[in-house]
Amino acid sequence: MSFPSPATSLSSIPANKVRLVCLSDTHGRAHRLAVSEVAEGDILIHAGDITMYGIYKEIRQFNDWLGQLPHPHKVVIAGNHDEVLDPLVCPRPQDPHKLLTNATYLQDQQITLYGLKIYGSPWIPIFNSPAFSLPRGEALRTRWRAIPDDTDILVTHGPPWGHGDLTRKGYNVGCKDLKNEVTYRIKPKVHIFGHIHEDDFIQLSNSLLY
Results as ranks from 00 to 15, higher is better:
residue 85 L to S: 05
residue 102 N to K: 12
residue 130 P to N: 07
residue 77 I to G: 02
residue 36 S to I: 04
residue 40 E to M: 07
residue 15 A to I: 10
residue 97 H to T: 11
residue 106 L to A: 09
residue 57 K to N: 09
residue 4 P to E: 01
residue 105 Y to W: 04
residue 76 V to T: 02
residue 71 H to E: 14
residue 26 T to Q: 14
residue 100 L to T: 06
residue 26 T to A: 11
residue 58 E to V: 00
residue 135 P to E: 13
residue 141 R to G: 03
residue 105 Y to N: 04
residue 3 F to C: 10
residue 125 P to L: 02
residue 43 I to H: 05
residue 81 H to N: 06
residue 75 V to R: 00
residue 11 S to G: 12
residue 48 G to F: 03
residue 77 I to T: 11
residue 105 Y to L: 04
residue 120 G to E: 04
residue 130 P to R: 05
residue 135 P to M: 11
residue 107 Q to D: 12
residue 32 R to C: 14
residue 52 M to S: 13
residue 74 K to Y: 12
residue 137 G to P: 08
residue 75 V to H: 02
residue 36 S to V: 03
residue 40 E to K: 07
residue 83 E to H: 13
residue 132 F to R: 11
residue 50 I to R: 00
residue 99 L to Q: 12
residue 46 H to I: 14
residue 94 Q to I: 06
residue 15 A to G: 04
residue 86 D to F: 04
residue 33 L to T: 11
residue 107 Q to H: 07
residue 73 H to C: 08
residue 139 A to C: 08
residue 10 L to E: 12
residue 69 L to S: 14
residue 123 W to V: 02
residue 57 K to W: 02
residue 73 H to G: 04
residue 75 V to E: 02
residue 45 I to S: 09
residue 120 G to I: 04
residue 132 F to K: 11
residue 39 A to T: 13
residue 101 T to G: 11
residue 32 R to S: 14
residue 83 E to N: 07
residue 75 V to Y: 01
residue 19 R to C: 09
residue 90 C to T: 11
residue 74 K to P: 15
residue 25 D to K: 03
residue 93 P to T: 14
residue 58 E to S: 00
residue 104 T to A: 10
residue 118 I to Q: 09
residue 68 Q to V: 01
residue 49 D to G: 01
residue 78 A to N: 02
residue 95 D to G: 08
residue 124 I to P: 05
residue 91 P to Q: 08
residue 139 A to M: 09
residue 109 Q to C: 06
residue 44 L to Q: 00
residue 58 E to Q: 01
residue 37 E to D: 15
residue 125 P to T: 06
residue 26 T to K: 05
residue 9 S to C: 07
residue 23 L to R: 00
residue 118 I to H: 06
residue 31 H to V: 02
residue 45 I to Y: 03
residue 60 R to I: 14
residue 86 D to L: 03
residue 41 G to D: 09
residue 125 P to N: 05
residue 25 D to S: 08
residue 101 T to K: 09
residue 125 P to W: 02
residue 3 F to P: 00
residue 77 I to K: 02
residue 26 T to R: 04
residue 84 V to C: 12
residue 5 S to W: 09
residue 109 Q to N: 07
residue 49 D to E: 00
residue 21 V to T: 15
residue 79 G to P: 02
residue 3 F to V: 15
residue 125 P to H: 03
residue 99 L to Y: 10
residue 27 H to N: 07
residue 94 Q to Y: 07
residue 97 H to L: 03
residue 128 N to D: 15
residue 36 S to D: 14
residue 123 W to C: 06
residue 26 T to D: 13
residue 79 G to N: 00
residue 20 L to I: 11
residue 116 L to H: 02
residue 43 I to Q: 12
residue 92 R to G: 03
residue 41 G to R: 06
residue 55 I to K: 07
residue 108 D to L: 07
residue 79 G to T: 00
residue 6 P to M: 11
residue 103 A to T: 01
residue 106 L to V: 13
residue 27 H to V: 01
residue 134 L to N: 10
residue 2 S to Y: 09
residue 79 G to D: 00
residue 53 Y to L: 11
residue 18 V to F: 09
residue 15 A to F: 04
residue 52 M to Q: 15
residue 93 P to S: 12
residue 16 N to R: 00
